[in-house]
């Protein structure tokens, strides 16, 4: 890993004010070749609150799933916690990001983000109900029971979402991401209601430290 760009600046009042340091690191593979890039912005808001903005992280596909993202994220989070940071913010996207950041404890940082995921959950509920109603197998088929369980889980989440974004009981991104998951299931090997809904999604996330 090598830092190849770092700069300091001041946010405009329209952007909330405060000062920041932004740096970008190049991630290298064990053979020294390029593996990806990561940009972080560390912000001191006008009231002194410290916020880390994970602006960008891209790993080449062949280097994903090998633990770099979680190790790098944990390394930085240790520094944030030791330095009194309040939170980390990011935009969850890409193939894995929509699910993985939720599974790592990030929650929705805007109402539109939660709404986008709940809309996808409602679409998934429609697909599940269609699958249930047209199921070609016997009624005691375990796969049909899984669909029925997922329908109940999706309905419960959507009912709780009626509380309104930011209100107690509103489903967290973590809760949605793990809905329908049985202990022992593994991401990338298995799929469940929450992983289907969150994988490939895009949303603004926040990790409260």
């Amino acid at each position: 890993m090598r830092v190849y760009e770092a700069l300091a600046g001041t946010h405009t009042p329209h952007s909330g004010g405060g000062r920041y340091v932004r740096f970008t690191v190049a991630v290298k593979a064990p053979d020294g070749g390029p593996a990806g890039i990561s940009t972080r912005k560390l912000v001191r808001e006008p009231d002194g609150t410290l916020v880390a903005d994970h602006e960008l992280q891209r790993l080449l596909p062949e280097h994903r799933g090998n633990g770099f993202g979680s190790a790098w994220g944990h390394h930085m989070e240790t520094l944030y916690r030791d330095s009194g940071f309040d939170r980390v913010e990011l935009f969850a996207a890409d193939d894995d990001g929509g699910y993985m950041w939720a599974s790592a404890g990030y929650d929705f940082n805007s109402e539109w983000s939660a709404t986008a995921i709940l809309d996808e959950l409602a679409d998934e509920l429609t697909r599940l109900e269609h699958a249930r109603d047209t199921w070609p197998g016997p009624p005691d088929d375990p796969m049909l029971q899984q669909i029925i369980d997922d329908i109940a889980a999706a309905r419960a989440l959507l009912a709780d979402a009626a509380a309104g974004y930011g209100q107690p009981g509103f489903p967290s991104a973590y809760r949605i991401s793990q809905a329908g998951r049985r202990p022992g299931m593994k991401y990338r090997r298995d799929e469940w209601l929450g992983s289907r809904v969150m994988a490939g999604s895009e949303w603004e996330g926040v990790l409260k430290l």
Partner: peptide, 11 residues
Amino acid sequence: PDGPDDPGDDP
């Protein structure tokens, strides 16, 4: 530190 990317893989 060498655990899976997804902590939920740990039951």
